[in-house]
């Protein structure tokens, strides 16, 4: 009643049964020796090198006013850059095959109504190519997922972490702003500054700002473009976001959700100022610092 497998162990000295398939390395050598394979690989590399600079172009267009104005915007631009770079080879290989197909493997034309009946190799499937393609796209997709989740956690911490700053000294406490959208203006209320209200947003630099966003009528979208934050302003609900501006200057706020007649003109500005200028502005608006 022994359950021990009594078959002889494979002899390590004995060579394995020979198969028809050569070793992967030899198969690769055989493949790359084909003229088209070499050319497509070279073409792919060249195209990749041509596409990668697009990533810099992307940064250029996203940086009209020069450099990100908040850590959130920095993370967004970094992500755009990385995604462009990592997807460049995929785009390059597709383009390389398409271009090479038109110039390298031959073209035929019909004569009148007669089909050319050219001869092409009958390739039904190729497990190596399939495995390589699916692995490459899967690895890329999983990289993007992991990157995206990490980045989302990071910017969420930047945006929503501001509420935890209650214990900090006054100069570092989050500035709370209640943002109200209505057709077709934005109103900014500062509850901690005795409820002063303003049609433009003024915030101190390097201090977290926390937004409670709502709408009086239809759905708007509060988009502080250069600060890289965006959240819907919904009627009947309050949504939140936050940011720590790190650059002085005047930036754009636009409505990014169609809200009717003058949607295009529902714009205002956010002025990022020094703490002293901010205090001066608060006093000027009629508020007084509490505590």
């Amino acid at each position: 009643m022994s359950t021990v497998d009594q078959r002889p162990l494979a002899d390590p000295e004995q060579p394995e049964e020979p198969t028809n398939r050569p070793a992967p390395r030899d198969r690769f050598r055989e493949w790359i020796a084909r003229p088209y394979a070499r050319r497509i690989v070279i073409l792919t590399v060249i195209l990749t090198l041509l596409i990668v600079p697009v990533a810099f172009l992307v940064l250029h267009f996203m940086n009209l006013s020069g450099g990100p104005a908040s850590p959130v915007m920095y993370e967004i631009e970094k992500t755009m850059f990385v995604f462009t770079v990592v997807s460049a080879p995929l785009m390059a290989v597709t383009l390389a095959i398409l271009l090479y197909s038109l110039v390298g493997w031959g073209r035929v034309k019909a004569k009148g109504l007669e089909p050319p009946m050219q001869e092409s190799p009958a390739i039904r499937g190729n497990s190596t190519a399939t495995v390589l393609w699916i692995s490459a796209t899967s690895v890329l997709a999983f990289f993007l997922v992991v990157w995206g989740i990490t980045e989302l956690a990071t910017i969420t911490a930047y945006s929503y972490g501001s509420t935890a700053a209650d214990q900090q000294p006054n100069s570092q406490k989050a500035v709370v702003v209640n943002v109200t959208g209505q057709q077709w203006v934005w109103t900014f209320e500062y509850p901690d500054e005795q409820g002063i209200t303003s049609p433009t947003l003024v915030v101190p630099v390097n201090r977290p700002v926390y937004f409670n966003v709502t709408s009086l009528d239809v759905v708007h979208n509060f988009w502080a473009v250069e600060l890289g934050i965006k959240i819907d302003a919904n009627p009947g609900a309050v949504t939140n976001t936050g940011v720590t501006p790190t650059k002085l200057g005047t930036f754009n706020i636009r409505c990014a959700e169609l809200c009717g007649l003058h949607h295009a003109y529902m714009e205002t500005t956010v002025k990022v100022v020094t703490p002293e200028e901010y205090q001066a502005w608060v006093r000027e608006m009629g508020g007084k610092r509490m505590a």
Binding site: W105, V108, N126, W133
Partner: peptide
């Protein structure tokens, strides 16, 4: 990933063929 499958099938069908353009 499944979208990539469709691209693979099209590229594989083009691969090494003479195209009637």
């Amino acid at each position: 990933i499944p979208f990539g499958f469709l691209v693979l099938v099209l590229l594989g069908t083009i691969w090494r063929g003479k195209a009637w353009t």
